[in-house]
Nucleic acid binder design. Structure first.
Lengths: 154, 154
DNA sequence: TATTGTTATACTCTATAACTATA
DNA sequence: TATAGTTATAGAGTATAACAATA
């Protein structure tokens, strides 16, 4: 005989179904790493998106706002404020684009370069910590499989 | 001699550094799957969080709001509106908790059960599609490694 | 004294429409 | 006609403080 449903209650929550879904696992893992990132990068006053923007400028001097938006899936109106804030902190500088007077090339200042050297070093430590329970091989495998999920036709 | 920096511009954006970071990869993969989820679950008018809530109620009849919040890392004030909306749609029903008059047990209605049978079926198809470029072994490996990232001490 | 569920509220993140200068 | 950058603004998501009822 089935138990009277209205009197049932839950002692331990069964999450096994959700844990069988890739989206659930990917989101939980991403949130765990991002939470750690937020804590460790707070000293530099950089959110994940600021770090991503500065990192792309570091490795792509002269990149335009439009290129940043495409690479990071940010909408142009939402990037404006970030770029302004980073410029006001004198971490980046705008220079005219050599071939297109509509566009602006973005570059790191000396201060920006110094900050990013420290920040990328911290990111590496953070990376090691977040994936600390994985072997080097597992880490490489996880990276490859994640990219197979989100990079189309590779 | 180094090129005059002000005249440099970027033709193809180099994202290799960001792609070496686990947080970046996990976030991009999660967003890709969630985007697909949003499209496929639109017919049921369920966002990922609604699906998660209904799924936990499905597999844990009588679960309380507080337990949902803990399991899904949702703050109590932000769950209230979702529960009210699902109750208004007559997908769930509140029943008194048998042992604690402060709490309320949550249960699926008949309509809710039918919707979730369909929705979980769609979720399975979606799952197969999102991980379509992975072998069965790779899929299992990816799941296990993601859980190693976000489930502490397992 | 602590916990469940709730209201009010603020802050951040993401999205859309429309404008200007230039291509 | 299309694109780069910008403004204004709306909506969604996430956060804290504080309260009533009950443990």
């Amino acid at each position: 005989m089935a138990p009277k449903e209205s009197s049932t209650f839950v002692t331990e929550v069964d999450t096994s179904y959700l844990e069988s879904l890739m989206g659930y696992n990917a989101r939980r893992a991403a949130l765990a790493i991002i939470e750690s990132f937020l804590r460790h990068m707070a000293v530099y006053e950089l959110r994940p998106v600021d770090f991503s923007v500065l990192s792309l400028i570091t490795h792509n001097p002269g990149i335009t706002s439009r290129q940043l938006c495409s690479a990071l899936s940010i909408l142009p109106p939402n990037l404006v404020g970030m770029i302004n804030a980073l410029e006001k902190r004198e971490l980046i500088a705008r220079r005219p684009h050599p071939h297109d007077r509509r566009a602006t090339g973005l570059h790191l200042t000396e201060a920006g370069q110094k900050l990013m050297r420290d920040a990328e070093h911290t990111a590496s430590e953070l990376e090691a910590q977040a994936t600390g329970r994985l072997s080097a091989t597992e880490r490489k495998t996880l990276m490859r499989l994640l990219q197979k999920i989100y990079i189309k036709a590779k």
